[in-house]
C-alpha cells in the first residue's frame, strides 16, 4: 500500500509531462519541466524581476497565518460557548448562519476600506474563510461531549468554569481539529483572491500568480500553484501531527 503513496504522484507527473509535450493540454499549459524551470527563475530572479519567490512565500504565509490565527482564536471560544450554552446559541446562531454563506471575496471592497492594502486586508478575507468552518465544528464538538462526563465532573466537585475548561474544551478538541484542518485549506483558497486587490509590499503568491497570468507566463502561474499546494499539504500534515500528539487518547 505504502508504495502507491510515491507511485501515484509520479505517474501523475509523467502523464502530465507526456501530454504537455504532445500539446494535448492546450496552448500555453506548461509541462512539469517548464514549471521547474519557472520555479528556478522565480527563486533566483523573481517576478517582476527582484521580487523573488521566497518573499512571495513569506508574505503569503504571514497573511494566511495572521487571518487563520485570529479566526481560530475567536472561533474556538465562540463555538464552545454556543455548543455549551443554549443562551449563547440562541443569540449567536442567527448571526453566524446569516454571515456564513457569504463568500469571503464579496467582502473585498470593504476589506480595502477598513484595512487598506497591507497585510490586514488579505488577512481579513482569509479570516472570514477560516472562521466559519472552525466555529461550526467547535459547536458540534462541544455538543458531542458526553453529558455523563459533565455530571461526573459535577459530582466530583467541579463548578461551571471548571467543567467548561476541563470537560467541554478537551472533549471538543477532536472536532476543533477537524475544523482547523478544513479552515487552513479554505484559508489558502481565499488567499489568491484576497491578494488580487493588491498587496502593498509587492510580494504574494496569489499576487504573483495574477500578474504572471496577465502576461501569459503560465510556467510561473503553475509554479505558484505548486508552491501553494505544497505549503497547504505541509500545513495539513503539521496539523495532523499535532492532532496525533495532542489527541493520543483517541
Amino acid at each position: 500500500m505504502k508504495k502507491w503513496k510515491v507511485i501515484s504522484p509520479l505517474v501523475f507527473i509523467v502523464l502530465w509531462q507526456v501530454l504537455a509535450s504532445a500539446g494535448a493540454l492546450g496552448k500555453g499549459v506548461p509541462s512539469p519541466v517548464q514549471v521547474v524551470q519557472g520555479l528556478y527563475q522565480l527563486t533566483v530572479t523573481g517576478f517582476p524581476p527582484g521580487y523573488k519567490l521566497l518573499g512571495d512565500i513569506l508574505s503569503s504565509l504571514a497573511r494566511v497565518l495572521l487571518g487563520f490565527g485570529i479566526a481560530v482564536v475567536l472561533a474556538v471560544p465562540i463555538g464552545i460557548l454556543m455548543g455549551w450554552s443554549s443562551w449563547f446559541d440562541v443569540v449567536l446562531d442567527p448571526i453566524v448562519e446569516a454571515l456564513r454563506p457569504i463568500p469571503p471575496l464579496a467582502w473585498l471592497p470593504f476589506a480595502l476600506v477598513w484595512f487598506g492594502l497591507g497585510y490586514l486586508s488579505a488577512a481579513f478575507v482569509i479570516f472570514l474563510g477560516v472562521f466559519f468552518p472552525v466555529v461550526l465544528n467547535t459547536v458540534a464538538g462541544a455538543r458531542s461531549v458526553d453529558p455523563y462526563l459533565e455530571e461526573a465532573a459535577r459530582t466530583l466537585g467541579a463548578d461551571r468554569r471548571t467543567i467548561l475548561l476541563k470537560v467541554i474544551v478537551p472533549g471538543s478538541l477532536p472536532s476543533i481539529f477537524t475544523g482547523v484542518r478544513i479552515g487552513i485549506g479554505v484559508g489558502w483558497m481565499t488567499l489568491v483572491a484576497a491578494e488580487l486587490i493588491g498587496v502593498k509590499n509587492g510580494y504574494g503568491l496569489g499576487y504573483m500568480i495574477m500578474n504572471a497570468g496577465e502576461v501569459a507566463r503560465f510556467d510561473y502561474v503553475v509554479g505558484g500553484m505548486v508552491v501553494i499546494g505544497l505549503i497547504g499539504f505541509l500545513m495539513d500534515r503539521a496539523i495532523k501531527y499535532a492532532e496525533k500528539r495532542l489527541l493520543k487518547w483517541r
Binding site: 471592497p109 480595502l112 476600506v113 487598506g116 493588491g198 502593498k200 499576487y207 495574477m210
Partner: peptide
C-alpha cells in the same frame, strides 16, 4: 518608489483612502 499592481477599478478607493 514602491510599485505595486492594483486593478484600475480599485485605484479610486485606494487613492481616496490614501492606501496609495
Amino acid at each position: 518608489v514602491n510599485i505595486i499592481v492594483v486593478k484600475p477599478p480599485e485605484m479610486l478607493p485606494a487613492l481616496a483612502s490614501s492606501q496609495i
